[in-house]
Design a protein around this nucleic acid. Sequence first.
DNA 1: CGGCGCACCTGAGTGC
DNA 2: TGCACTCAGGTGCGCC
Length: 278
Amino acid sequence: MPELPEVEVTRRGLLQDLPGCLVKKITWSNKSLREPIPRKLLVRYIEGNRIKTIDRRAKFLLFRMVNNSTMVIHLGMTGKISLLSVGEPRARHDHLRLFLDKEKELRLNDSRRFGSIAVWPPAESIQLEKNFSRNIGVEPLSNDFHPDNLMAQVRRRTQPVKTFLMDSRRVAGIGNIYANEILFDAMIHPLTPVNRIPRQAWEKIILSAKKILQEAINSGGSTISDFLGTSGNPGYFQVKFKVYGQGGEKCRKCSKNIYKTVIGGRSTFFCSHCQTMK
DNA sequence: CGGCGCACCTGAGTGC
DNA sequence: TGCACTCAGGTGCGCC
């Protein structure tokens, strides 16, 4: 399910109930996700402790514990976190179950197992987070997402702007769907080399990104009440995308054809009439 | 160093 | 109904 908006909506949903909860017991599947599940660290630092709050960095959820440890979860392509009432039967592809007080269970289900779970022990948490964050680009909803910042990074680069927006070391949290949608909104051709984008166009990309991501978060916000219960995940919010998945359809702005191609190995949708190289 | 292709894994959909 | 094949929202490695 997850790009930045979906992860953020998940975070906000969990924030309604999780802070203060005690993690009484943790169980896991016998399969690895992207990396092996850190069982020993989960038992040592998360089990028996209380959740303080939940933060987000890029598409990672950071569960801050009262003992200053942190559980870091990435949802990959198919990861879903649900907050369930105790007694929900286990399901195929459940990989992590946190049994909480207040008759609740936090569960991670991930069929493709591209997700990940890490634990930062209290003593190393600050340093580990520093290293972690250093390898991740600017948060697009922050004030640091600014033409100065981006243009300084792209002087020598020729990669397509779509690839740049999706590169987590440059910009955090933008995946294939929203990269397509943002560039349509900004009227920029996805193949435009980043070193040939003028400041004005960067300003537009930034505004479009903030707008598109914020709209997605807002529309997901209305589904937060679905968190309790098995069907509880917001997914892509039934948002009607303007270009993603619309190959062969008519452009909403100019009625010309929307093309589908592949950039950086990912499906790319755009209107060659509305979206130009500046 | 920058940029690209590919692997990782399962499930859904399509066409024969 | 079954089989073979394609594609999918993410990330990081290795290769040129």
